[in-house]
Amino acid sequence: MIGALMLDIEGTTLCEHDIEILKNPQVGGVILFSRNIESPQQVRALTDHMRQIRPEILIAVDQEGGRVQRLKQGFTRLPAMGRLGELYQTEPQRALTLSEQCGWLMATETLAVGIDFSFAPVLDLNDISDVIGDRSFAQNIDDIIPLADAFMKGMHEAGMATTGKHFPGHGSVKADSHVAAAVDHRSYQEIFDKDMQTFIQLMPKLDALMPAHVIYPLVDCHPAGFSSYWIQEILRKHLKFDGVLFSDDLTMQAACVAGNADARILAALQAGCDMGLVCNNRTAAELALHAIQDQPLPNQTRLERMRGKIEITLQSNTKWQEVKQDIDAFVG
């Protein structure tokens, strides 16, 4: 069974403390960071060890491309998605082809080392945000939708589930929610007409969503990831989204409005998230884990959709070699 907490580990191998905590039924996932990664062979050994302890555990990573790419040594360097948006202005068909190839290549290389999924793609607009920027495909909806659609098509072809972030949109909020409170004072209609459209129009391709740690006070007083209104009323009821909902990292500064880590994960789960992320702070992760021990396990059918489906041997795969050459040439 898959639990409701996703946490991280300190090193490139599991220590005894890691092994003990992974055995807890409410630990449902592990997210890997750059410090956990030395080579494809080492990552595969690490994920295999995790599954010896908990065969059902979900393993994730942030492998967006550009400045957010945890898998580096021995993996293809991916462009920032914003570069595809720039290319789309002059060579739209080539940009769409490269976007699909990026999605496929990212997913293929990630799955090959035993990681189930990357938290990708970013569906925010590249507007005023201090944290989004070229993580976004483009500045406007009409460019983002076809490029992200192609990227997710590539992910699905490789066998990886997709996770759109950060619903209902972080691009129009200047503050970086990692380090500051983020507040968007627009009306629901303004958000719906602009930022939400990428999520709404791409929803058929989305297996999961990650709500933003942003407060939209004209809609609800809680950040979207802690808001039953955004999650239950808007996403589940109005937009009829039945995919997985992952909280953004609950140690981020913008999440502190909910209290300590125990209060934060309870707030996220009670609002309707399926799994809460507590990263880079083992003390906070243990506090969160203790808080949810008596909580029911999340929706297993939903979470099982996030499991990686296909595994290939890269070096003998002609398509991988050809696509890698195309992406290497584009990145330069």
Rank of each mutant, 00 (worst) to 15 (best):
R44I: 11
F167V: 14
L46W: 10
L209V: 12
Q315A: 07
R70T: 04
S228P: 12
N317W: 01
L147C: 03
G154D: 05
M196A: 11
A208H: 04
L297T: 09
R236D: 01
E304C: 11
D130Y: 07
F226M: 12
P121R: 08
F246L: 11
L303E: 11
L239C: 06
D62I: 13
G164H: 00
M196C: 15
T97N: 08
R67W: 04
L235V: 13
M160A: 04
G259E: 00
Q197T: 08
S39P: 04
K324A: 13
K309S: 08
N299P: 09
A148N: 09
I128P: 05
E157A: 13
M1D: 03
L98D: 09
H178M: 03
G66W: 11
M160C: 03
Y229P: 01
T251A: 01
A255E: 14
L46R: 14
P121S: 07
H166K: 00
G272E: 02
D176W: 03
A271C: 12
Q89T: 11
T110N: 04
F137C: 08
A138I: 12
L58R: 10
L277S: 10
K174P: 07
A45N: 05
D274E: 11
K240Y: 09
N299R: 12
G243E: 14
N140Q: 15
L245T: 13
F241M: 04
T301L: 13
Q189A: 13
I312M: 10
Q42C: 02
Q41C: 03
A4F: 01
S316Q: 15
V219W: 13
T13N: 10
Q315H: 06
Q201T: 09
L22H: 04
I31Q: 00
I141G: 00
I115G: 06
S187E: 15
A112E: 09
R77D: 05
D48T: 14
R307V: 10
D48K: 06
D274S: 11
P296A: 09
A95M: 05
T198A: 10
Y229W: 12
Q270I: 00
L250I: 06
P168Y: 06
L87M: 09
G259A: 00
Q52K: 09
C102M: 05
V68D: 13
P296L: 09
S227Y: 04
L314A: 07
G11K: 14
A212E: 02
G114Y: 07
Q89E: 15
V122Q: 02
N281R: 05
G169K: 08
D130G: 08
Q232L: 04
I128N: 12
I265H: 02
L287P: 01
R77M: 12
L123C: 01
H222L: 15
T13A: 08
M152R: 03
L111N: 12
C102V: 15
P204T: 14
L125D: 04
H156K: 08
R302N: 14
A258G: 01
C256V: 14
G74W: 03
G272C: 04
R282I: 02
S136G: 15
P217F: 13
N126T: 05
V43N: 05
K319C: 01
A268L: 07
E100A: 10
M252R: 11
I215G: 00
P40R: 05
V122R: 02
A261P: 10
R83Y: 07
K237P: 03
